[in-house]
Design a protein around this nucleic acid. Sequence first.
DNA 1: AATCATGATGGAATCGTTTCCATGGAGAAG
DNA 2: CTTCTCCATGGAAACGATTCCATCATGATT
Lengths: 356, 356
Amino acid sequence: MEKRATIKDVAEAAGVGVATVSRVLSGGSASPRTRERVLAVAAQLDYRPSALGRNLRQRRTGGMGLLVPDLTDTFHAQLAEGVLACARSAGEPVLIGSTAGDPEQEAELIGMLLEQSVDRLIAVPTGDEDTWAPALRAGMTVVFADRLPARPSPEDDDPAAVAVNDLRVLDGLSPARPAPVRALDVPSVVADDRAGIRTAVRYLRGLGHKRIAFLGGPGHDRRAAAFGEAVGPPVDEDLVVFGTGSRDSAYAAASGLFQSRPDLSAVVAAGNVLGEAAVLAARELDLRVPRDVSLVMYDDVPWAELCAPPLTVIAQPGRDMGYRAAELVLRSGPRRPRSVVLPTELIIRGSCGPRR
Amino acid sequence: MEKRATIKDVAEAAGVGVATVSRVLSGGSASPRTRERVLAVAAQLDYRPSALGRNLRQRRTGGMGLLVPDLTDTFHAQLAEGVLACARSAGEPVLIGSTAGDPEQEAELIGMLLEQSVDRLIAVPTGDEDTWAPALRAGMTVVFADRLPARPSPEDDDPAAVAVNDLRVLDGLSPARPAPVRALDVPSVVADDRAGIRTAVRYLRGLGHKRIAFLGGPGHDRRAAAFGEAVGPPVDEDLVVFGTGSRDSAYAAASGLFQSRPDLSAVVAAGNVLGEAAVLAARELDLRVPRDVSLVMYDDVPWAELCAPPLTVIAQPGRDMGYRAAELVLRSGPRRPRSVVLPTELIIRGSCGPRR
DNA sequence: AATCATGATGGAATCGTTTCCATGGAGAAG
DNA sequence: CTTCTCCATGGAAACGATTCCATCATGATT
């Protein structure tokens, strides 16, 4: 275990000041002669600047944070791979956290990133805008991917709560009541959910399906809204069900849906975990796909093709989304685009058939 | 964007010295009276110690690194979830990197972690022992998961290379020739590959299969060896093929295997990506599973059950492996166990049948 | 030849924390 | 009453980089 050379060692060995070494290494101005000698000495000593000193001085940790609900959801894994690919090519480290779809854990992880002074963050958000307010207020550059945070629950505008806040302000110890931070102002990279869902619904309609169900999870509000829009009013609310994020709850939701509404003939699953659950639940209930029920799943994952039958999917470019999000968060210029919307594609395989 | 309170602010507001604040917050000795006041003030100022200062002072970044070949490999995603779960409950950050099965990228990521002064690392290694020497020599606490690095290629013991090294030592600028670092001394968490493979081979033998092939990827040497042992000599070398890690190469390897050896009747795939490739290749070649060819796949992944037919698998506890590895790397006591071997389980579904 | 502009250079401050060490006071033991 | 011990406490020195600023040399301009 050998200890690493510091900038001081390099400076001494090269007979120059530390400031000069720093300038040479970070591309500042220096005479060719000095530059050459410093570089030579640095190479000989195998000097690598410590991120620790730099971070402290600049009061920020380089790299970026990445928060996803669950890596075993293949789509999130694809997205993460995209982020990692971009970060790798930029030489930036990535701090990752998995929120398990729980706003509380998400808030904790945000706190941890704040403590680490990570000021760039890519997130597939789970909590609502209130969960994200601390991060934004702290000046983090946030990019949302795949989804946007929901609007906060109204209880926080409760007059009583305001009163409490005001009292604490008068106390002089608590920070002033924060200005509301709109997550809407945060750039994002999402798929064109409206078009994706609309295409899927039209496709199913074209096959003769009338009673189409929607199976969603946390964060799929946009897709649910798009679904409602696509099927058009009146929306049969019983045909729109949600799981809470775990595989178990997805299965329960799918199974409950099939049992409570035997009249449905097609299902749109808003994510691959939900699609998986739908296939399992249908099989358990002896519903055959696509004879008894047609299925369209969000996310094109490698195993969709291996399924029996191969699943018709709404593909969204997970890896690209991650890569683009990482690019956005790295080049956080002022003329940053508000949000990037990537196209989806309906890939027809074998899980949809005509209405029986 | 409000700036965070520092320890100095807390000290001033509480009327004590910074040393006292630090002690109170990190559990040192202090009078109850002072402790109470410091805690109260810290809470009121919403003070959170910056990891930056602490890291620099302690010359180490907290948390741990995690290096996996590919997150879209569901097994690695499970493993990563295990690591994240343990890290979360310990409140430690995780720096993640994906190596794409490329030793060079792995070496780069190790360098990046070194630069960040991350001194704890969990890795599903891709490169050989030489790739890992720098990390170990720098004093990193490394835990390997799922696999161990291969022995280095012999060219590095080339006398010429030694001579060059010696010259550089005489030069007085290069570090002394490093003592060889055996990856064998590094703790690890792996599945009981020998038992897993043996069970699978015996099962296939029991179904009457004689010509059993092995389909592996990078890092599957142990499994390949276990396979050779299980089928017993003489091993038909043509029945043992390897892909390079990507899905394309896995598909090519599987397809090539089926085409070059139409006489084989069963395949053991050493990982889920390879199993996926085997299913696709078989389908493309109109080989039916399990009628024409039986398949056992390493890794129990959620989609194995959705496959047509559902895949018989050698299950290994990916999430547990990650969790245990994280525990090991965090409690790096001297009486750390050398290595943890977790059991595998053969889960029989529908992808194996009697020899046709 | 004197003055000015330019650019290279190094010393020192700084970032926020932990930790070493000296100091002071209180209580115990003599 | 004295001395000794122990503990709480705060000042200051690290940690390793970046960056401000003053200095100095060189070459150009008047």
